[in-house]
Amino acid sequence: MARVEVPLLRVEQLQTHFLTQAGVARAVDGVTFEVAPGEVLGLVGESGSGKSVTGFSILGLVDEPGRIVGGRVLFEGENLVAAGEARLRQLRGNRIAMIFQDPMMTLNPVLRIDTQMIEAVRAHRRVDRAEARRRARDALGRVGIPAPEERLSAYPHQFSGGMRQRVAIAIALLNEPRVIIADEPTTALDVTIQAQILYEMQKLCGETGTALIWITHDLAVVSGLADRVCVMYAGRIVESGPVDAVLDRPLHPYTAGLIGSVPSRNRRGARLAQIPGMTPSLFALPSGCAFRARCPNAGEDCAREAPPESVPEVGRTLRCYHPWQAERAS
């Protein structure tokens, strides 16, 4: 896989907090990662781990009462956290595009597909409607929608879920962005459709050199798609590295737990491992390591201070005092 030294997008110590009456929820608390052109980064975590908020933070789309309170988002060297709304608007859907989780909800039900695609082109390109419509049709064709010309004048409810997600992907591809942030785009779809869409996304991004940040809770998707993976827990990246290394030899007990809880064919009959306990509330994170209450390795030191980021191997990071022993996993 092509590795360019200058990162296309670099997120540094990003902190996004939700300031509510009930207290401050640290949804994203010091997240750092980077993506190179053409690279596919998997951002893995459970519900509430802050992975979606991370995605929205990059585009400055965090809703009230959420706010980016610290860190930087560097896109081609430009800090987007400091950028104004006008600049962000220029980048959104143009240089950095996003795909959402639920295709039933992302398309406006009362507007036709062509309206929703043409406006996306014309928000960023000085082209007439006919040209914008031609581009929209081409994009629909590229994501594998049959008879794109006819489908353009349809309304969203006339599409199936998979087709709607293809439309959303086509909209994301319209302006040939450098980065696509995909927030669990296949979770709501059937498995066969999921596979098709994964395959097509991989192909399209490979062709154009677009970087892809794939947010998911599904390790199987990551293993087949991503080059590198970041595992998030309670607003922090607890482990990151090349996808094969992390999945074969997990270092953080949480990663190991996630891998262990994936049903797999070669361990049939064996009891499926599970991570005990629940994700902690973001309003009341425990002191020290947020995972310690559920961690089989936790010691007294884990309660005192959150583990700092370490580099156990080249290209990998880890936040843990008591890494998982590979032999125990097997």
Binding site: T20, G48, S52, V53, V62, G66
Partner: peptide, 12 residues
């Protein structure tokens, strides 16, 4: 929708 579960702000 489901993404709300992952974005505490919406729920709040």
């Amino acid at each position: 929708s489901a993404p709300a579960s992952d974005t505490p702000g919406q729920g709040l």
